[in-house]
Amino acid sequence: MAKGYWVAHVDVTDPVAYEKYKAANAAPFAKYGAKFLVRGAPQTQVEGHARARTVVIEFPSLQAAHDCYNSPEYQAAKALRDPVSTGDCLIIEGYDA
């Protein structure tokens, strides 16, 4: 079974308030087996447009990635993030060779 991934590009306008979102998302991420592969590390933009922060999260399956995003726990965390950041988030099925 192919894994699922979240790929997010985010600009944070209030880093202190954003920390509350990060604390609140820990429980749903643990519940759905999330593993951070990239979490706001330094990045070099070589083409196109990018936001300041990139996050890549791996889930055991595409279904788990969707279930986490749609869970009440994550949506409560997201409500903390929305007023203090702007971003794009994709849920993508991994390549299972």
Rank of each mutant, 00 (worst) to 15 (best):
A2I: 08
K3W: 02
K3N: 09
K3D: 06
W6M: 06
V7L: 15
A8M: 08
H9I: 15
T13C: 12
D14P: 06
P15E: 09
V16E: 10
V16R: 14
A17C: 12
A17H: 09
Y18P: 02
K20R: 13
K20A: 09
K22H: 09
A23L: 11
N25L: 06
N25I: 09
N25S: 11
A26L: 11
A26H: 11
F29Q: 12
F29I: 06
A30V: 06
K31M: 03
Y32N: 05
G33V: 00
G33L: 02
A34G: 03
K35M: 07
L37P: 02
L37F: 01
R39Q: 14
R39T: 05
G40M: 05
P42Y: 09
P42A: 08
T44H: 10
Q45L: 15
Q45K: 14
Q45S: 12
V46M: 08
V46H: 11
H49F: 10
H49L: 13
A52G: 08
A52P: 07
R53C: 12
R53L: 08
R53S: 14
T54F: 05
T54K: 04
T54G: 05
V55L: 02
I57D: 02
E58S: 11
P60S: 02
H66T: 03
H66Q: 05
C68Y: 02
N70D: 03
N70C: 03
S71L: 00
P72R: 09
A76L: 06
A77P: 03
A79K: 00
L80I: 06
D82R: 14
T86S: 12
G87W: 12
G87N: 14
G87R: 07
C89I: 10
L90F: 12
E93H: 04
E93Q: 10
G94R: 11
G94N: 12
